[in-house]
């Protein structure tokens, strides 16, 4: 099944700092609950693990993460992730487009659009939970990411 999420959030830091974090998977991915990056396997291509739970159904994916587009001038990135359940119970694909803009009054605004396609057990049994769980994961990401940016700002 397919789901689309559109999210906007703001952070007090400037867009340069945000951008620097976003393009580095080691800095951004550990802000997403259940996601870890294991290794870089090529130009803009990383391998990692994703674990999630949708109500009664859990999944552990081996994931390939690609930075498909890094548009420095416009501060826009497109990240795609392809995950296959380690035991063959299904798969998930995600494309996320994120734009960062500086706000006049300082800080920056992030606009994200995520398209998610899920197959297998989660689609079958967790369908009704996917949007709710995704929203919650995103909110947790925002909290974690904001904290990380704040820390980075202090240490900078």
């Amino acid at each position: 099944m397919k789901a689309q999420l559109e999210k906007t959030f703001e952070v007090p830091q400037g867009s340069d700092l945000v951008w620097e974090h976003l393009i580095d998977p080691n800095k951004v991915m550990d802000c997403v609950p259940g996601v870890s990056i294991d290794e870089k396997v090529g130009e803009n291509h990383y391998k990692g693990k994703v674990g999630m739970k949708f109500g009664p159904i859990g999944a552990k994916y081996d994931a390939d993460i690609f930075y498909d587009e890094i548009d420095v001038a416009n501060k826009k990135i497109i990240i795609t992730g392809k995950g296959v359940d380690v035991k063959g119970q299904g798969s998930a694909d995600m494309t996320m487009t994120m734009n960062i803009t500086d706000k006049e009054e300082g800080g920056s605004k992030l606009d994200a659009v995520m398209d998610v396609t899920i197959n297998g057990k989660i689609a079958q049994f967790g369908a009704r939970l996917i949007t709710t769980v995704s929203n919650q994961l995103f909110n947790q990401f925002v909290t974690n990411f904001s904290k990380k940016l704040a820390k980075a700002e202090v240490s900078a």
């Binding site: 099944m1 397919k2 396609t117 197959n119 297998g120 689609a123 079958q124 049994f125 369908a127 009704r128």
Partner: peptide
């Protein structure tokens, strides 16, 4: 759904 997942394969759905 479009991918051929059965979305209501339980008696809850």
């Amino acid at each position: 759904d479009e991918e051929g997942n059965v979305l209501n394969g339980t008696l809850m759905d």
